[in-house]
């Protein structure tokens, strides 16, 4: 099963989804700050804003779902399904500016006719920002992944430690010498 292979990868634990929520939240927050001087409002009921906000809440729900305890495969399978459904919103966000008349301009770079309409210096700034944010994302994902691995490690160590401690207690009887009580049998 694909999900078993995913579980074998280790503690992915929705690391990228957490970062995705942060980045989507940043996009909304920074966009609001930009909107106030340019549009004179922080928020307007515009198709792209609504679909992006929906995306934000979809992945918050995804993270909530991940927190439901269960064995690793179960969590992986559940989360995969939820992520799959939530992804439906991503193309809607992208095409929202073409499907509805919005405050945002229509697509400038990824246009349907593949002819980018963007000025040179702006294009370079955009490229710079895109690359930088991707690098930040990769860096944060690597750090968060490491943290998740350490958390798993600690959990394992604690279990081992608890076993050792229990074994060293006076009343501990190893499993092979333990007397199994017989149901209905008199003492």
């Amino acid at each position: 099963m694909a999900t078993d292979a995913c579980a074998a990868l280790g503690p992915t634990r929705g690391v990228t989804a957490e970062l995705g929520v942060i980045f989507t939240g940043l996009a909304l927050a920074l966009g609001m700050l930009w909107g106030k001087p340019i549009w004179n409002v922080y928020w307007t009921w515009d198709a792209r804003l609504i679909t992006t906000a929906v995306l934000f809440f979809l992945y918050i729900g995804y993270l909530a779902l991940r927190r439901i305890p269960g064995d690793r495969n179960q969590v992986a399978r559940r989360s995969a399904v939820a992520a799959l459904i939530a992804f439906v919103d991503v193309p809607i966000v992208h095409f929202s500016v073409n499907w509805w008349r919005t405050q945002h301009q229509q697509a400038t770079v990824l246009r349907p006719d593949l002819d980018p309409q963007i000025h040179g210096t702006m294009a370079w700034t955009l490229l710079w920002a895109v690359v930088t944010f991707h690098l930040v994302f990769v860096y944060l994902a690597a750090r968060r992944y490491r943290l998740a691995a350490i958390e798993d490690h600690i959990a394992d160590e604690e279990l081992d430690l608890a076993v050792v401690r229990r074994r060293s207690e006076d009343d501990f009887v190893p499993a092979e010498r333990r007397q199994v009580p017989v149901l209905g049998g008199g003492a």
């Binding site: 609504i50 679909t51 929906v54 809440f57 729900g61 909530a64 779902l65 439901i68 399904v81 459904i85």
Partner: peptide, 27 residues
């Protein structure tokens, strides 16, 4: 139905289901 199966049963499911499903139903 998919989300209801995802979120399981019990009190936690009752709380989680609206959070999960209402954004998907928004469109």
């Amino acid at each position: 139905l998919i989300y209801a199966f995802l979120s399981g049963t019990g009190r936690r499911a009752d709380m989680l289901l609206p959070v999960l499903v209402l954004p998907v139903l928004a469109p």
